[in-house]
Every structure is written in structure tokens, then in C-alpha cells.
Design a protein around this nucleic acid. Structure first.
Lengths: 144, 144
DNA sequence: TTGAGCACTTACCAAAAGGTGCATACTTGT
DNA sequence: ACAAGTATGCACCTTTTGGTAAGTGCTCAA
């Protein structure tokens, strides 16, 4: 399989070029989504991309609502995926900070259009989400 | 909050422009990820973007491994989010097909860089994922 | 008349993701 | 002596997500 999304379908382009799927990915988008999906990962990338090396405590306070367990967990995954770098200063009261690796930066760049799309269409998206909560997951919409 | 990702951090740019967060989104990226996250959604977008209007059964066979329940569910969400359009021909043996809305197309476009990133870095990503499975989620990596 | 295909729906389950709260080892401030 | 801050770890629980298997109403082919 290959890049799931090709330009405007009206053009009927057969399918973009694409490396034939390594190990377990169906396509590039699949691979990407696996590394960025996680409730707080985008936010983490956000802060780290903006502020540069960020200490754990700072992130914790900046993100707010995230628990230690999950924040650490997501940081570890991002680190394991080679997107962020953890630096431990081995100091007495622990000091650690997180920064983006080159790979992390490249991903951040690729995410820009998504940020833009989300920002541009946030109104529509949020409207639709609001409606969904109306029929609290169980009741069918009126038009059924 | 705003677009989580800004260009290379070395530039120390304060933060890109960004609409101040509607209802429940922390940023544009957040909004976007909410509509595309779902195990099969990218694939669905893939097929529909490529083949244009696609019948339910076709998708079902094309995606393979997905169950009816989940496929239907994700299609409904995509529809509810205004990304795909469901057309019911009201025929005797049921006939229905799914296509992308303009919004869906615009999202598809925004996803292209992610596809590209994933394709370009699939080797790295998959390598790292392989290692993760080594210490089957619980055992710490050697360097700890 | 039986069976297959269509596009779903429903009830029930298992796994994954996320959250809470307590613990750690050490230092600094009061 | 004691509380607070540092960066985690761990046990336990709830929510969310995905999956299985069966059923529905209808039509057409054998």
C-alpha cells in the first residue's frame, strides 16, 4: 500500500508513488499516526518545539490536566521513537530536559498543514462535535 | 493556544498565528487529530479519495481485517464530521456509496505531508517499533 | 425452498489508553 | 524535625476502542 491520500480525486490519479510498506505499516500516513497519536503528544511537541529544551516540571505545568504517569509515558514513547531527546543532568535534585531531535523537527514541519487545517476548520469541526454530544452516543440522529 | 508546531525552534519564534481555541480544542492540530484518529479512518480516506464514490461492500473487501461494526462506525463518524458523504440509493438490495466532501478533500490535502513524512522515515520508525516489541511493554530498555 | 448477498444492527467481550494516588531518594527552606 | 520540590515508578481502576458472532429484511439465482 502507499500514501493513502492523493491530490483531488477528480483528477483520478491512480495512486501516488510509495514505498511498499515495511514491517507493519499499511502506508506512510499509518506510520506517522502511530508516532503522533497519544492524547498529549501533539501538545508536547508544541511546547518543546516552541520553547526548545524544556524541563519535565515545566511541561507538566504547561500542559495541565495531564497526569505524571501519562506525561512520562508519552515522553518515553516520543523518545523511543526518536522524536525527542531526554537529557539527564544527573544533578542532585533531579534535573532533566526534553528537546526535539532532527527527526522530531521534520515531523513538526509535516504537522504544520494539519495545524492549519484544524485552525481553519475548527468552527465546523467543533460544531459537529457539539452536536454529537447531544445524542450522547447511543441515540440515533433525527434523520435516521 | 495556537498551532502547536512552529518552524525550527532554533529560530525561537514566539508562536505562530492561531485562532484562540474554540470549544474544546487546545489547538488546530488537536482538532484535526480528533477527526482522523480511528484505526481505519486513514485507510478509508485513502480508498475513497482514490476511487471516488465507493460502495460499502467494496470498502469492506478492500480494507480487509476490519469488521462490519467498526467500519460502519468509522464511516458514520467521518460522515458526522462532514468528511465523507453517504449516498443511499434507496434500492431494493441496498445500495449505498461513500465519497469525500470538499472538507474531506481539504483534509486529504493536509495529510499529504504526513504521508510523505511517514514514507520517508518509515524505515526509522519501523525499526524503533520493532525494538519496542522486544521488551514487550514492561521491561525497561538496557540503557536505564 | 434454500442459499447467498446487500448494508447494516445488536449484544457481549477483550485489549488498549488514560487516570488516581501513593512511594522513592535526595535536598533545600522554615 | 518537617514540608516542599525534583523526576519518576507502581498498583489499581475506569473509559475508550476495537473485535466476534449472530441477526434483520429484502431480493435474486439455483
Amino acid at each position: 500500500m502507499s500514501d493513502p491520500i492523493s491530490p483531488p480525486p477528480q483528477t483520478s490519479q491512480p495512486a501516488q508513488s510509495c514505498t511498499p510498506t515495511l514491517p507493519g505499516f499499511t502506508c506512510g500516513l499509518d506510520a506517522t499516526l502511530r508516532v503522533v497519536s497519544g492524547k498529549w503528544k501533539p501538545l508536547i511537541l508544541y511546547f518543546v518545539a516552541q520553547d526548545g529544551p524544556t524541563r519535565y516540571g515545566e511541561l507538566r505545568r504547561a500542559i495541565r490536566d495531564v497526569s505524571d504517569k501519562v506525561l512520562i509515558q508519552q515522553l518515553k514513547e516520543l523518545e523511543a521513537d526518536g522524536l525527542v531527546k531526554r537529557t539527564d543532568y544527573k544533578e542532585v535534585p533531579p534535573r532533566v530536559d526534553y528537546s526535539l531531535t532532527p527527526l522530531g523537527h521534520s515531523l513538526a514541519q509535516a504537522l504544520v498543514p494539519l495545524c492549519t487545517w484544524g485552525t481553519d476548520h475548527m468552527a465546523e469541526v467543533s460544531r459537529v462535535f457539539a452536536e454529537r454530544e447531544t445524542w450522547t452516543r447511543g441515540i440515533r440522529p433525527p434523520t435516521t
